[in-house]
Every structure is written in structure tokens, then in C-alpha cells.
Write a protein that binds this DNA or RNA. Structure first.
Length: 263
DNA sequence: ATGGTGGGTAGCCCA
């Protein structure tokens, strides 16, 4: 079995102790991080190396965004795509060697898209849609078993948010974003592992806003995803969230997802 | 009822 995890950590330097706690508890073979918010030279390499995660692909930048894939399984890095053509660090792709041989693992942080769901009024929203469109064209050409994971910043299904009607005009749940996400899905036949293993309408939210979490109203959204090529999806055996991390001290606003594959 | 919280950076941007 090969287990892959993904987690938007919202600063890997601030939360390195939480990442260590998570890795010790869950022992995934590979962890994909988003929003590391640091350049590679300040990435806490030693903490990962000490736990056996001796293979690392860190695509960082100062202060914002940034993704990293750390692994106990050897891999070969093959891409750092810039789907906005603006230099932001939002993707790193690796190919596993050894266990899981041949699996391609694409770690992505899709832009949040600002507050106003209108391309004209809010350029960030347009950039989010363009990012999805470029990913769709990229996805159309993939011809190897691939796992696409990360913070997609979109909760596509009605049951992926705490209140569909209240959020239909809120960025992350608007029809225009969701349509763009379905075009991405259809370009490769991606299988949503979150919903393969936790069928709708079961609750499997991955993110709770810092602004409302204290209200304890459980206003979550499913923004983080693990999507597999059809052949690879047939080999997934389990999928779960580690929701308890949201109640740790000074937590990330996202929780980790873990999928196990029979490989 | 247009707030609220959090992280990184440098006197605001991003989520």
C-alpha cells in the first residue's frame, strides 16, 4: 500500500511542529503541502529528514503561496507549472520511483480568486478562471496514471458547503467556478476520490474560516481535493480526513486528506 | 449587519 496525504498548512515554518505530529501519527508515504509561505532556503528540511522524508521538492516563494512535496519514497521532479504566467509558486509535479512506481503526483494550489465573483470588477477572479482553463488544456494531454491533489479553492457540490443557498454568490461556490472545475474534470476523466469514498451528501469538509470557527457553528467547506486518473482511482482503497488538526492550538484553517492505494 | 481572524512582510497584501 502507498499512502498519499495533502494539507494546506498556511505557513510551514510556523506549524512545523504540527506537521511533525501529523507525520508521526499518520505515517503517510508522501505529503503534499500548500501555502508553505516561504522560499526553499528557509524550508524546515531537517524536521522532515529526521522522520525519513528524505525526498523533497520545494517550490516556494517569499511570504505567499508556495507548495512542497515530501516523501519517504524516491521520486523525480518533472515540472513547476506557472498557470498564471505571473511567477507565483502554485504547482510542483513529481513521479514516484520504487513503491508506486510510475505514479505521477501533481501538487497544486489554485488561486482563491478574491472576494467579488466578477472578472471585470475583480481581476483575481479572472485569474482563477484562467488558471483552471490552462489546467484543463494541460490535463487534456496527460497520458500516465496521475494523482492531482491540493487546495482547489472550490467547493463544487451543494453538500460541499454548510449552506448552498447562502454561498452560491460567494467565491469558492459560484456556478461559473464550478463549471470551470467540471471542464477540468472532464478533460481527463478525473475521479473525485473524496466523493468515491465519502459519497454525497455525507459531510467531508476540509476548511473552516478563521473568522467564524470560534462561533462553533460548523460552517465548513470542501476546498481540498484528491483527484485520480480513472485507472489509478480503481486502485484507491481508503480515503479520510484528519479533522482533529483543526482543533489543535494555532491550527491551519485546512485539514489533511489521506488516500491509500493498492500499489 | 459589510464585521470577523490569521500569516508574512514591512509600514499592507493575501487568504
Amino acid at each position: 500500500m502507498v499512502s498519499i496525504a495533502t494539507w494546506n498548512i498556511n505557513s510551514v515554518r510556523l506549524r512545523v511542529d504540527q506537521v511533525v505530529r501529523f507525520l508521526e501519527q499518520e505515517q503517510p508515504d508522501v505529503l503534499c503541502l500548500q501555502e508553505i509561505k516561504t522560499e526553499e532556503k528557509h524550508f524546515p528540511h531537517e524536521a522532515f529528514a529526521a522522520l525519513g522524508y528524505t525526498h523533497r521538492a520545494v517550490h516556494g516563494q517569499k511570504g505567499y503561496h508556495g507548495v512542497a512535496t515530501v516523501s519517504r519514497i524516491p521520486f523525480r521532479e518533472h515540472a513547476r507549472n506557472d498557470w498564471q504566467a505571473n511567477g507565483e509558486a502554485r504547482h510542483v509535479g513529481v513521479e514516484l520511483l520504487g513503491p508506486g512506481q510510475g505514479m505521477v503526483l501533481e501538487n497544486v494550489y489554485i488561486p482563491a480568486g478574491g472576494d467579488i465573483p466578477d472578472r471585470e470588477a475583480n481581476p483575481k477572479f479572472g485569474q482563477k478562471l484562467d488558471f483552471l482553463e490552462r489546467m484543463t488544456r494541460w490535463s487534456d494531454k496527460l497520458d500516465r496514471p496521475t494523482l492531482l491533489v491540493g487546495d482547489f479553492n472550490i467547493a463544487p457540490l451543494e453538500c460541499d458547503v454548510y449552506d448552498h443557498k447562502a454561498l452560491i454568490k460567494v467565491v469558492s461556490h459560484t456556478p461559473i467556478e464550478i463549471e470551470a472545475l467540471w471542464r477540468l474534470r472532464d478533460a481527463h476523466g478525473w475521479v473525485d476520490l473524496g466523493r468515491k469514498h465519502i459519497p454525497a451528501p455525507q459531510r467531508n469538509w476540509t476548511w473552516w474560516s478563521y473568522r467564524t470557527f470560534w462561533q462553533e457553528k460548523d460552517r465548513g467547506r470542501r476546498l481540498d481535493h484528491m483527484w485520480a486518473s480513472p485507472d489509478l482511482a480503481a486502485q484507491s482503497r481508503s480515503h479520510r480526513l484528519v479533522e482533529v488538526t483543526r482543533r489543535w492550538d494555532q491550527p491551519s484553517d485546512h485539514v489533511p486528506l489521506i488516500t491509500e492505494f493498492d500499489l
